[in-house]
Structures are given as C-alpha cells and as structure tokens.
C-alpha cells in the first residue's frame, strides 16, 4: 500500500501535475452534550490532500486537536465504504456534502478548493437529537423499523425456500432498490420539514413488494406510519430533496407506494 502511494505521488510529480495541499477553514458545530447549547467554532486546517476522504480530513483535524491537548470533534463513522449508513454530517448545507449518490465517507476533498470555508453541522431534526458535537441519535429510525419493518416467518424447520417462490423481475428489482436504503437519515436532514417519509416508505416498500411481506402489508404500513408520526418527523411536501440527497438514490416512487398502501390499509 505504501509502495502504491509513493508511485502514485511520483506519477503526478513527473507529469508536472500540481499536487498542492489545501488550506481550509472549518466551521464546526461543537456541543458538549445533549443538554448543552452548542455553537459553531472555527478551525484553520492545512496540509489536506485532494485524495483524502472527508472523514480522513476530520481525522487530521482531530489529531491536531489531540496534539494540542484539546477535545477532538466527535463524529459518526464505521465502515468508511458507503454501506453502513453511520456517517452523517451536514456539509455546507447539504447532507453528505455537495456530491451526489455518496455518503460522507465517500466524499473526497477534491470536491473542495484550496482556501474554502466548510461548514459542518449535525443532521437537524427533533427526532434526531444531538448527542455530542456532530453525532445525533437516530434510534427513532430503529423504532420505526421495529414497529413493522419485518416479516414473521415460521422457522420451525419447514420453511419454504425463498427462491422457490416465483417473483416478477420488475417487482424483485423494485424491492431490491428499496432495500438498498442504509438508514443514514440524509432524507430527513435534507428535507425542509425533517420528514422521514423516504426512509419509512423504503422500508415499507421492500417488504410489501414481495409475497413474503405482502401478508402483513396492511398492519405494517399502519404501524410504521404511526410510529413515524409519534417520533415527531415532519410531513412530506414532495420537494424531492430527499431523493436527490439520498446516497442510495431511493426513489420518490416509494413514498407514492407507501401513500397507496396506507390508504388501502386505512379503508379496510
């Protein structure tokens, strides 16, 4: 790996391409704990390479802060390859930053210019209270999931193999695309109403579209929407901001499907 990095560096040097470290001004939301007020603090940061990921840039900042004996900035991260949905951050007014179809860990510093000021805030919603600095509590999503985002399958030994149930390709694909939701909360963060409808509808859809999930479809959609409302998420204005900012490109079609499912379940 080290060998590759040297080679990579040399290639750029020999080809006269400028590799210039970036100097940035970071404006970061710092908040001691949930009860504290919190506020924006400014940190100048130099020596940032374009190939660093956004989280690596924050790692560099935190190392500097630790070296100086200051408290590092707390932020969420886990897999760092865009599949777990843990990293959050509202970067320059957009969840996961200015690029599309990616999580914050997949955002690279080449999306910014030398001398840029970057504002980094936690996702904001009543249902996503700040725990510390940039970390928010997203267990409200889990409670929505627990309200009905499952199928009850008998696992006593006579379970039918899922592959033996024929499912139309279109339907299987739609269910799959809905299931790619990683529950990161970018939809809520992007929405002007802090609505969780894209998330909830993806979870409703991925099951309602398949024969195994269809059985409990009515109960599921009623319970999940009820929980979503209880958590204090806002309503949907169909601005489409969630779909644009979603790292997985979850479609608004899912919200329409949830609207249909819910209407049908309500009148039954």
């Amino acid at each position: 790996m080290r060998q590759f990095e040297l080679t990579h560096h040399q290639i750029f040097k020999s080809s006269n391409l400028q590799i210039k470290d970036m100097n940035l001004t970071l404006k970061i939301w710092r908040q001691k704990d949930a009860a504290s007020k919190g506020g924006i603090q400014t940190y100048p940061l130099g020596g940032i390479e374009a190939d660093m990921s956004f989280l690596e840039m924050l790692d560099v900042l935190n190392q500097e802060l630790i070296d100086k004996g200051e408290e590092p900035v707390v932020f969420d991260h886990d897999c760092r390859e865009g599949i777990c949905g843990t990293c959050s951050l509202q970067i320059n007014g957009e969840p996961h930053g200015p690029d599309r179809g990616i999580t914050t860990c997949q955002l690279h510093m080449r999306a910014f210019k030398d001398g840029d000021t970057i504002t980094i805030e936690p996702f904001r919603a009543k249902a996503f209270p700040v725990i510390k600095d940039l970390v928010v509590d997203r267990t409200s999503f889990e409670r929505i999931q627990q309200a009905g985002g499952y199928i009850s399958v008998n696992t006593s030994g006579n379970t039918q193999d899922a592959n033996s149930i024929p499912i139309p390709k279109d339907q299987a694909d739609a269910a799959f695309y809905a299931a790619t939701c990683i529950g990161c909360g970018a939809c809520v963060a992007a929405c002007k109403n802090a609505s969780a409808m894209l998330f909830t509808s993806a979870k409703v859809s991925q099951m309602a579209l398949l024969p195994q999930g269809e059985v409990e479809a009515d109960r599921r959609v009623l319970a999940m929407v009820e929980q979503m409302d209880k958590e204090g998420f806002g309503n949907c204005t169909n601005t489409g901001a969630c779909e644009i900012e979603c790292p997985k490109g979850i479609s608004l079609e899912n919200i329409a499907r949830m609207n249909r499912e819910y209407m049908r379940a309500s009148v039954k």
Binding site: K27, W29, I40, Q90, N92, G93, E94, P98, T119, E121, R124, A125, K126, A127, A190, K192, N193, A194, S195, G232, F233, G234, N235, T237, T239, G240, A241, I244, E245
Partner: peptide
Amino acid sequence: NRKARPKGYVSFKPSTNS
C-alpha cells in the same frame, strides 16, 4: 413541520436539491 426541526441549520442550501 416547523416543530419537526426546532433547531435549524447555520448553513442550509435547499436550492441545490429542490
């Protein structure tokens, strides 16, 4: 909807996505 986000963003750019 106002209640759903009691604390707003310092920087919010909805024009980029809606």
